[in-house]
């Protein structure tokens, strides 16, 4: 092992070889140029393109999400508004119906009252008319009775007194 150490130090490992340096340089540069043409160009551009594609996809997804959220928010607002509107309409309808019912019943009551009072008036009038007729009839009857009495008795004074008292009686009874 010591001797191999000597060989190592003797420099064959570290000895320069211009031919190898030349060939390495030439080979490497040619490989670099060829690989740049056939591989790195397309691969790197494909990777760049994919990166950009992914980025734009992410951006688009975010945008879509934002849009969706905005639409959702709008929908919720519209829904809330519609709910409120429906509530309002129902309430208004109820109020209107209540008012209408109250109105109708008020009117009906008023009408009924009016009709009742009208009927009362008419009844009163009819009654008065009937009384008038009755009074005339009674007067006629009385006159005819008196005639008969007079015809039978002809006691003028007495009869007159009787008639008078009879009339008196009638009028008091009426009142």
């Amino acid at each position: 092992m010591l001797t191999s150490g000597t060989i190592l130090l003797a420099g064959s490992l570290l000895s320069p070889n211009p031919g190898l340096i030349f060939w390495t340089a030439v080979t490497f540069v040619i490989v670099l140029i060829i690989l740049k043409k056939i591989a790195w160009g397309p691969i790197i551009s494909a990777l760049d393109e994919r990166e950009k594609g992914i980025q734009s996809s992410i951006d688009r997804a975010h945008q879509a999400k934002d849009e969706a959220e905005a639409i959702l928010k709008k929908n919720r607002e519209t829904l809330a508004k519609a709910d409120a509107e429906a509530d309002r309409i129902i309430r208004e309808g109820k109020d209107y119906a209540d008012r209408l019912r109250a109105d109708i019943s008020d009117k009906a009551q008023a009408e009924a009252k009016k009709m009742i009072s009208n009927a009362k008036d008419e009844i009163e009038q009819e009654k008065r008319r009937a009384l008038d007729v009755l009074r005339n009839e009674v007067a006629d009857l009385a006159v005819r009775g008196a005639e008969k009495i007079i015809k039978s008795t002809l006691d003028a004074d007495l009869q007159k007194k009787i008639v008078d008292s009879m009339i008196q009686d009638l009028s008091t009874k009426r009142n």
Binding site: G19, L20, F22, T24, T27, I30, V31, A39, I43
Partner: peptide, 23 residues
Amino acid sequence: FDLSITKHVVMLWTVSAILIALF
């Protein structure tokens, strides 16, 4: 200048050939 094709030069060329074929 000694521009001999040595064992290591051949290996370099082998590497180049494999690399170019692969890529």
